[in-house]
């Protein structure tokens, strides 16, 4: 099956894939995106562009993707169900693929009460699983969800998120299976700190043979300080940060350096887990460290 995107080509080639995340700016100029692009060029197979993360308005994911394409990088457009109904979703996908976007990550999206405009009206016309079904129909049948035919069908490498650390734990694998049935090609997990829980989750995934049906990329996030670790542990829902990690950062002299070292260790460990096809580095507001992490983790020649 021919690869529909660079990322897919890497994964199909059996090579350990690397994806990173670039946070679109709260600005009308793409200057910061271009800067990140230059810094991170070559350090990852594809770069996620978050879609109004934590429900805060930022430059649109597709616009940033276009800029990355101009800079020669391969984007992964993230599309939440919070801000668009199925009509807008399908038109955005057609536009994005016209601009050369091939990778799309379907996520439900954070509730608007997390963001800075709590009084906004959310959409949630469809959820992430249904989003996958819609996009797969556009790709495989060349039809809109309504059944109307498309002149040219989009070529998409469909991704979905998975969070082994959210509850109920035993249902999480079933939910992953549901996403695979709905058409997910690759998975990017929530950032991992509690390694045991992730491994137990991967064991269940392998038990159901899902790791052969979908490419799983493990999510990591370098922590700048123990305060950030505590914030992640307590304020961010669905995130598990063991106390040992917090302790380690707290006692370290150079917290940032310790954060990077921890991240590299995690990556090296993740490479040993069967079924993990790659790693997704979420260095939000620390994008410049991604090349260093990739190099120190030996992910790039």
């Amino acid at each position: 099956m021919s690869a529909r995107s660079g990322l897919e080509r890497t994964l199909l080639g059996g090579k350990f894939a690397v994806t990173a995340e670039i946070g679109p700016p709260k600005s009308a100029s793409a200057e910061s995106v271009r800067r990140h692009a230059h810094e991170m060029k070559g350090s990852a197979d594809a770069f996620n562009l978050t879609d109004n993360q934590t429900a805060m308005s930022r430059m649109s994911s597709i616009a940033c993707a276009a800029v990355l394409i101009q800079e020669g990088l391969e984007p992964v457009v993230q599309m939440t169900c919070r801000d668009r109904n199925r009509i807008a979703m399908q038109s955005d996908i057609l536009g994005a693929s016209a601009l050369g976007v091939r990778n799309v990550l379907c996520i439900s999206g954070d509730h608007q009460t997390f963001g800075n405009m709590k009084e906004a009206k959310n959409v949630y016309d469809v959820d992430s699983v249904q989003e996958l079904m819609i996009l797969r129909k556009m790709r495989d049948e060349g039809r809109l969800w309504s059944g109307d035919e498309l002149e040219t069908a989009p070529e998409l490498f469909l991704g979905a998120a998975a969070n082994p650390f959210a509850d109920p734990f035993e249902f999480r694998v079933t939910r992953l299976a549901k996403k695979v049935k709905a058409g997910a090609d690759f998975i990017q997990t929530q950032s991992i700190y509690d390694m045991d829980r992730f491994e137990r989750w991967m064991a269940l995934v392998r038990a159901r043979g899902l790791h052969e049906k979908v490419h799983i990329l493990a999510g990591v996030m370098p922590l700048k300080s123990h305060k950030v670790a505590l914030y992640m542990k307590n304020k961010v829902a669905g995130m598990m940060v063991p106390d040992t990690v917090v302790e380690r950062l707290k006692s370290a002299k150079d917290a940032k350096e310790e954060g990077i070292r921890l991240c590299v260790e995690q990556i090296e460990h993740l490479r040993t887990i069967e079924g993990v096809k790659g790693v997704h580095i979420m260095a939000m507001a620390w994008e410049e460290k991604v090349p260093e992490i990739v190099k120190r983790a030996g992910l790039r020649p």
Binding site: S108, D110, T113, D127, S128, A166, A237, G238
Partner: peptide
């Protein structure tokens, strides 16, 4: 469900509570 999901739960449900507020069960 705060996001009216039909194939829930979302990634934010933890300890049986919805990410939106601790006293709202998921």
């Amino acid at each position: 469900c705060a996001k009216s999901l039909l194939n829930g739960p979302c990634g934010g449900s933890q300890g049986g509570k919805c990410e939106v507020s601790p006293d709202t069960p998921c």
